[in-house]
C-alpha cells in the first residue's frame, strides 16, 4: 500500500495556485526529503495531506483513504512553532501530553497506558529527563526534540515534519536527521521531512520530493537533483555541483538553497546563522 498518493492535484490558496496538477505516489516505509524554495508549497502540501487544505482539483489519498482531518495514523510537526506559554512553568511533559487524546472531550487526566506511551515516545527521542523541565526554560533545539516526541504519540504510520532543522546549528541538524532516520527504521514508518537544503539529509533519505514553479518531482536524489529537473522547477537555468559528497544547487554564481536558507534565517534566527557563517 502507498502511504501517500496524489492524483492530478491542484492546491489553491487565496486565489493563488500553489501546486498545479501534480501526481505522485510515496510507498510506505520511505524517508522522503521535501525540498523547495520559500513559498514553493512545502507547508501547503503537508496541510493538504492532513486534510486542512482541500485540493481545488484532484484527489489525495493517505494510506488508501481520502485525506481527512484528524487522521490518527498521521503525526505532524508544524513549521510555525507556537510561542512557549509565557509566565508559566508548565513542564515539557504536560506540553507533550496535551496531544494524547487531545481531540476528545473530557478532563485532561491520562490513564496509565497513555502515560506509558508518552514516556515511551519521550525515551525514543532521548527527551525523558528534558521533559521534566519547564518549557519556557529549554532551548529551541531541545524543544524540537519534544515536538518530535509528540508526533509519535498515537503510534502514527506517517510523519509529516515541517522544517524540523530550522534554528538548529549544523551539529544539531545532523543529530535530528539521524534521530528521525533511526525512528523511521525502528518503527517502520513513512516520513516526509521538509528542509531548505539537501545536504543535511544526504545519506538519510530514500527519496526527494522537490517542489517549485507549481510542480513537483519525486525520485532518488540522483534522479531529481539534476540540472534539467531543477531548471524546470526553478524556472531558470540551474547547475548542480557536487563537491566532496555535498551538493550545491547553483543559479549562475548563487547557491540557491543556501541563499534561501539564509533568507529565512535573516528574519527568524539571525544570531544563530550569523555566528555559524563567521566561524
Amino acid at each position: 500500500m502507498n502511504a501517500i498518493e496524489l492524483d492530478d492535484v491542484s492546491l489553491t490558496l487565496g486565489g493563488r495556485r500553489v501546486l498545479g496538477g501534480i501526481s505522485f505516489a510515496i510507498a510506505a516505509g520511505r524517508f522522503v526529503g521535501v525540498l523547495g524554495a520559500n513559498g514553493a508549497g512545502k507547508t501547503t502540501l503537508m496541510r493538504a495531506i492532513l486534510g486542512l487544505v482541500a485540493p481545488s482539483h484532484g484527489a489525495i489519498r493517505v494510506r488508501g483513504q481520502p485525506a481527512t482531518r484528524g487522521n490518527p495514523a498521521v503525526g505532524y510537526m508544524p513549521q510555525v512553532l507556537s510561542a512557549a506559554p509565557q509566565g508559566t512553568r508548565l513542564s515539557g511533559w504536560d506540553f507533550v501530553a496535551s496531544v494524547a487524546n487531545g481531540h476528545r472531550l473530557g478532563l485532561p487526566i491520562l490513564g496509565r497506558e497513555k502515560r506509558a506511551e508518552i514516556g515511551c515516545a519521550l525515551d525514543l527521542v532521548g527527551a525523558g529527563k528534558l521533559a521534566r523541565r519547564p518549557l519556557a526554560e529549554i532551548s529551541g533545539g531541545e524543544r524540537q526534540r519534544l515536538l518530535l516526541a509528540q508526533t509519535l504519540i498515537g503510534r502514527p504510520q506517517l510523519l509529516l515534519l515541517d522544517e524540523p532543522l530550522i534554528s538548529l546549528d549544523p551539529h544539531h541538524q545532523q543529530e535530528v536527521v539521524e534521530l528521525v532516520k533511526a525512528l523511521q527504521r525502528e518503527l517502520g514508518i513513512t516520513v516526509l521531512f521538509s528542509a531548505h537544503e539537501i545536504n543535511p539529509l544526504l545519506g538519510a533519505i530514500d527519496q526527494v520530493l522537490y517542489l517549485g514553479n507549481g510542480q513537483a518531482a519525486l525520485g532518488a536524489i540522483d534522479e531529481v537533483i539534476t540540472a534539467p529537473v531543477l531548471s524546470r522547477l526553478y524556472g531558470s537555468a540551474i547547475d548542480v555541483i557536487r563537491v566532496r559528497g555535498r551538493i550545491f544547487v547553483m543559479s549562475g554564481s548563487h547557491d540557491v538553497e543556501h541563499e534561501e536558507h539564509r533568507h529565512e534565517a535573516g528574519h527568524e534566527h539571525a544570531a544563530h546563522e550569523g555566528h555559524v557563517d563567521h566561524v
Partner: peptide, 23 residues
C-alpha cells in the same frame, strides 16, 4: 469547562497541531 478542558488545553498549547487533529 470540565467537558471541554482536554481539547481546550490542546488548542491552547498547540493550535496548529490541534487543528490538524480535528479540533
Amino acid at each position: 469547562l470540565a467537558i471541554i478542558s482536554r481539547p481546550l488545553l490542546f488548542a491552547s498549547l498547540q493550535p496548529e497541531l490541534a487543528e490538524a487533529k480535528g479540533v
